[in-house]
Amino acid sequence: MDFREEYKSEMNSAMPDEQAMERIRQGVAEKLAAPKRKPFPVRRVAAICGSAAACLVIGFTAIMLTAGNRFITSGGMNMAPSALRPSTESLAGGADMGTQNICTPNMDGSYLGDQNGGDADMNNAPAEDPTKPAGAVNDEPPSENRDENRGDDADSAPQYSDGKSNSDNSGSLEHQQPENFWGCSTTVSFSEGMITLTINGTVRRFEAISTSGGGGGSEDSYYEMPSADETNIMPANPEDNGTPTAPEVNGGDELIEVTADSGELLFVKTDGGKLWLYDAELELLGMFVEIE
């Protein structure tokens, strides 16, 4: 049996007859005459949807990055609770103390009576007289103006902090209230020549080593405090004859804007165990060193 011939004959017998041929021919003609349906533009729709999704992702990412950068720039990242910080030394960062509760000292006249007038009784050169070496006694008598600025001028002294936060700086992100934002609170209080800095229960005490209120106005007087222990008075920078060295305000160090209860705008800078206090004009009011 020849498979080829047999197979051909079987297939020829299975070929469509005239009816089937006409049926196929009509079917082809109808399909050709039918209007062609435009296929659904899957690729075009996919391209448009993909582009829109990509734009949304890019836009959302840009918004998130911008917000994150603004938050970092404003120091918001340093506003974390102190429990999350490696140590309290991070206070030197500055930006984490956007606002503070300033506790003014107890300023009775007896305490500050011999301390006003340009540091006359302190064995430390005033900031306005850098030519005097450290430890030199200032023989200049206190000026009348200084006498008027004595601490017993209680009328001009602000009242003590009642724990209220500064509401003047709550308008922008840079002035977010720490206790509102992160739940932490920073308090600065003055008492007997010392500044007590309390951050979330962590107390750091600073002792005044230099004040510069000799030529200042009355608003400076109550910050001019001597050291509690004058034997421990040390120049801020012994190499420049005891002249207190102000931090480089323009050198990138961030000052912490604080507001006293009296409404007076002040600035504070901390660096390790040191603390600088500035007025609104960025004039150094005093330097303090941390007491162990």
């Binding site: 297939m11 020829n12 299975a14 070929m15 469509p16 041929m21 196929i24 021919r25 082809v28 003609a29």
Partner: peptide
């Protein structure tokens, strides 16, 4: 030409499909 092509090649195409 339509009828000629259909008549000439329908068995070939149909045979492939049916096989």
């Amino acid at each position: 030409s339509f009828d000629a092509v259909m008549r000439m090649y329908t068995p070939t195409v149909y045979g492939i499909a049916w096989s």
